[in-house]
């Protein structure tokens, strides 16, 4: 209950951060706007319909990811240091609140805030796609169209579960990133932490590059081992970015639900790891 109380208060506090609201509003606005501008990016109407979708989806997911990453970084960087700045942490820890309860509450609050932000962006994203799909279906259903278009109209599904999986995967990477940054915020100053977090994301996002560096010809076996180790220890943010299935309906490789589940476990373990280390550090931290 103490953890829940701290988490709830954290959410209320975090959602009122102006900078977070700005990112959220801009992201949602641009996702909605993408409805219109995707049309100008293609040269044709029908054949372009699928490429419009593709662009819309990719843009939406990218927008969510980018805004969410900033929100994750900002939340992770500020949540705990602000408790010190406002001296609220003193009154809280002077109460019969165990230190792990405080940290866990903060983690939970950050994850809930990100959940709300992702939920808003994700809902906008899915509604945008569905609106677009309805429009495309209506066009395709018009009686003058022959079998060619008819075939592509059948392909335009109104709702695609892959969108939901994609949004969940997007959320999972926020979860991992903000947990790591929250952990770092116990050690580093806010500015250092922001860039550290961004770096962790960038390296994790480009893990394939890191791996191929490790496999590069001429690399010594020690170096190769180093790269391999790095790629296993850093969270693989690239693995959360697999819009293929969503954007490429012809791809029938694997069960997205199962993959998402696996990634969820992966993300949760990282979050747990960050939380436990944070608790270990915070127990010994002077406040």
């Amino acid at each position: 209950m103490i953890i829940w109380a701290i988490a709830r208060t954290t959410v209320g506090d975090a959602l009122r951060k102006k900078i977070l609201q700005v990112f959220l509003v801009v992201a949602i606005g641009l996702i909605v706007l993408s409805l219109s501008f995707s049309q100008t990016l293609s040269f044709s109407s029908q054949r372009g319909a699928s490429s419009d979708f593709m662009l819309l989806k990719s843009f939406g997911l990218g927008m969510m990811a980018l805004a969410g990453i900033f929100i994750s970084l900002i939340l992770g960087v500020t949540l705990i240091p602000q408790e010190f700045e406002r001296r609220t942490i003193y009154t809280i820890l002077a109460k019969p609140v165990k230190r792990y309860e405080f940290i866990t509450g903060k983690f939970l609050g950050a994850l809930m805030t990100l959940g709300i932000a992702t939920g808003l962006m994700g809902a906008t994203f899915i509604i945008t796609i569905v609106l677009k799909a309805i429009g495309a279906q209506q066009a395709a259903a018009s009686p003058t169209l022959g079998h060619v278009l008819g075939a592509s109209a059948e392909k335009i599904a109104l709702f695609d579960w892959n969108m939901v999986w994609a949004v969940i995967l997007v959320y999972l990477q926020f979860m991992v990133l903000s947990s790591i940054v929250l952990l770092f915020s116990l050690i580093f100053t806010q500015t250092v932490n922001f860039f550290m977090g961004a770096a962790v994301y960038a390296v994790g996002f480009m893990s394939t590059v890191v791996i191929s560096l490790g496999g590069a010809e001429g690399a010594s076996s020690a170096l190769r081992f180093f790269y391999k180790t790095v790629s296993y220890l850093l969270p693989r943010f690239d693995q959360f970015n697999i819009p293929n299935q969503l954007l490429h309906p012809e791809t029938q490789v694997t069960n997205m639900g199962a993959y998402t589940g696996m990634m969820a476990l992966y993300g949760l373990l990282y979050t747990l790891l960050a939380l436990v280390v944070a608790i270990l550090i915070f127990e010994r931290k002077e406040v």
């Binding site: 699928s50 990218g62 927008m63 970015n241 819009p243 490429h248 791809t251």
Partner: peptide
């Protein structure tokens, strides 16, 4: 097929263009 572009192009790439 038209899906190939996004198959390899993370959306962040596109958004970063802003």
């Amino acid at each position: 097929k038209s899906g190939d572009m996004m198959a390899e192009l993370p959306g962040q790439f596109i958004v970063a263009s802003f």
